[in-house]
Design a protein around this nucleic acid. Sequence first.
DNA 1: CTGAAAGCGCTTACAG
DNA 2: CTGAAAGCGCTTACAG
Lengths: 339, 339
Amino acid sequence: MVTIYDIALKTGFSAPTISKALNGTGGLSKSTRKKILTVAEELGYRPNMAARSLTTKKSFLIGIIFEDIDMQRGFEHPLFGGILNRLRMEIEVSGYDLIFLSHLSMEKRNSYVEHCRYRNIDVCVVINPVNADKSIMELASSGIPCVSTNFVIPGIPTVITANKEAGYNAASYFIRNGHKKIAYISGSYTRYNVAALDRLEGLRQAEKEFGLQYDESYVEYCPQWTRECGYKAMKSLLGRHKDITAVFVSSDNMAVGAMEYAKSAGMKIPEDISFIGFDDEMFSEFYSPPITTFRQNRTVIGELAAEILMNRIAGIPVSECVLIPADFIIRSSVKNMHS
Amino acid sequence: MVTIYDIALKTGFSAPTISKALNGTGGLSKSTRKKILTVAEELGYRPNMAARSLTTKKSFLIGIIFEDIDMQRGFEHPLFGGILNRLRMEIEVSGYDLIFLSHLSMEKRNSYVEHCRYRNIDVCVVINPVNADKSIMELASSGIPCVSTNFVIPGIPTVITANKEAGYNAASYFIRNGHKKIAYISGSYTRYNVAALDRLEGLRQAEKEFGLQYDESYVEYCPQWTRECGYKAMKSLLGRHKDITAVFVSSDNMAVGAMEYAKSAGMKIPEDISFIGFDDEMFSEFYSPPITTFRQNRTVIGELAAEILMNRIAGIPVSECVLIPADFIIRSSVKNMHS
DNA sequence: CTGAAAGCGCTTACAG
DNA sequence: CTGAAAGCGCTTACAG
């Protein structure tokens, strides 16, 4: 392993001078700088991050908080996996490396913040935390610069899908197609992740604007974002109301569960009952019928999150919250009641 | 930040003694060890990895080589994403952290090996490398302990799906169902990743055993694992041979492309032509018809890779290559010609 | 069983 | 514009 001392020896300059040349700090003369850089190149010098990190307290490490207990899908999560893909692309060209922060190693590190200290992590991305309440609040107030996607946490800038708008669009699409009794199957929510509720709020707003009566008994809240939950939710909804003609579901995965129940109850989709989902999963176009749904803009979310992160590193002020519209993808799971 | 010197001050012992107590090295008396540990706990001491890494040349960092150029699916890759999920679970409880090695940062680091040196990375997992030839060979011979999944690289132990066996099973299933003219659509392959070829080899062996004639003109090689390629491959295959009744395809994704072409050519599946795919994607059960396919055992592969890695870290000898059978999932895309 | 000394590879004031 | 000194927080021989 070649160190700055090897370069010092070969060039005749001192270690601090080598350091300054390598980092472009300090006012060195062009010629010595060039000489040093040349020798560094010749020798195949690479900095030792541990040494650098020990003195500077920086690490060029970006902590990724990405865990997935609920859905058991991990990297294959339809939204989070996609965001992480793009985020990674954007970030890696900058010379930073990505490292996962994990609750599994918590017993040794107690919290995300301690994990950050342990590794001198410079900055964090909150994509999907676990046990959010304690450890995320601690992170938000730790002084470690963060950005989050889809989690709204006080003190952390967020890039998030415009969920309310999407809910509004789903409902007005139903209404314009002649539906009047619209049910909603909600995914689970937490203090920091209220996507499912925001979508409902958009739906209510549309109903109000179009003069429809909102009725809470047409809403079913699920404890998890799974097919099974969608199935059960549909069952109770249909047990309560025979007049439902349209259902907006928080995710395509849950929508499949709901549709499976409707089918098992002898209903035809969309002839007897219509559905709109969320996420545009890989299976959504192939389901029978192909599912009308929303596609969250993973690419843009990932890009913007990376941009905000880089700005935070550079000390540039950053907006608190940016909303990204979801694309509405119309397929065949909604019936036009007028025709 | 509390350091070992703070503990030294408070306990009256020297820094080396604190270090030994914390690490469980050196023969300290029970009482001083206990005293030190208690104070460390009180003070909320956390080791500084940079300092530790600087002296020990270890980092408790596991480098993940996981890139995805071809398929553009990244973490959502049906095989690699799943493997990474499990691998991560297994590894994080051990106190190691995962860090991504990337070709995007190559210009600054030149190779995976240099990236490893730069971060003092202890050990690597090769899940899906890019530009494999140069940088992977260098890694294999670098002395850095590695394990790979699905890539067979000299000098690196591998956990991999039993592809030949799967190909054999696919072909014999076709044959037992009365098919005689079996085509194969191959995904792309490289020197280190010959899954698509291994599956073909299994198919040929089955044909041979069952007394069928192998004909290379019934094979189509694709440059990429995409739907478009599957579509084109099916087109040329059908252009060459009218008598094909069954097609084995390297992936469900490509199979969808192939089936779309068959449909567009007016063929019914499986009435006119049968298909077996690979991967069991999320959409495979919902496609029309539901696709008969193989499911690679991501969980077992991830687990075993982690186990091998831990053994390598511990210096325990490890087997060169372990083959994991894929589950055959029978759905409705194959016709029984006997009935 | 415990500690004094030295070093890991780098950077940061501070002098000159 | 360049360098001597000190330090980042830890561990490793080596003494005793």
